[in-house]
Amino acid sequence: PKGLGLEMVEKHPLQNRWALWFFKNDKSKTWQANLHLITKFDTVEDFWGLYHHIQPASKLTPGCDYCLFKDGIEPMWEDDQNKRGGRWLVTLAKQQRHTDLDHFWLETLLCLIGESFEQFSGDVCGAVLNVRAKGDKIAVWTCEADNRDGVTHIGRVYKERLGLTQKVTIGYQAHTDTASKSHNLTKNKFVV
C-alpha cells in the first residue's frame, strides 16, 4: 500500500531456512578452510536481497563454488544427511557460462527455496555450483540415492525447469560412487 514502509510489510516465509556457502580455492589451505558460510535466510525477500548482493555465477573466478543447503546440512559428502545420497549433475559446455549458467543457477535456487518437487522436496539437501575452466557444473543433491521414486521425480522436474530438451540427458550419481571412482568413470544410477 502507498505510504507503507517496506519494513512494515510481512515477509513471505520459506518452508526451510537455507545457508549459502562460498568456496574459494586456495591451495595453501585445506578444502574445509576454503569453504565459507556466507549467510542464512528463510524468507523470499531475504533471498532476493542476498541474490542481488553477491556476484552472479558467471562472474566467479574459476575454481570457486556456491553451495545452497538446508540449514544444518554441510555441503560435503561426509555430512550425515548427504552420505547415503547423490546428485543430479548438469555439466555445461564452456560457452554456456555466458549463455546459460546464471539462468540455470537461478532456476536451481528457485526450485529449492520454492519446494518445487512436491512430496519429494524433503529429499533435497542442497545444490552446488562449480565454476571451472574446463566447464561449469551444477548439481542438486538429495539425501537417499536408493529412493528411486523421489530421485527420479526430482530429476524430471529439475530437467523441465531448466528447459532442457528431450535430446539432453542428465545423470544421477551416488556420492559413494563419486568418492570411490575417478570423475570420468562415475556411473549414473539414474538418467532422465
Binding site: 517496506l6 513471505h12 525477500e45 532476493w48 536481497g49 528457485l110 526450485c111 520454492g114 519446494e115 522436496s121
Partner: peptide, 20 residues
C-alpha cells in the same frame, strides 16, 4: 501447511525487494 512457491511468484518479488 507446507510453504511452496512457484517460480513466477518468487520472481515477482525480485526487484521490489532488490534494494532492501
Amino acid at each position: 501447511e507446507k510453504k511452496r512457491y512457484d517460480r513466477e511468484f518468487l520472481l515477482g518479488f525480485q526487484f521490489i525487494f532488490a534494494s532492501m
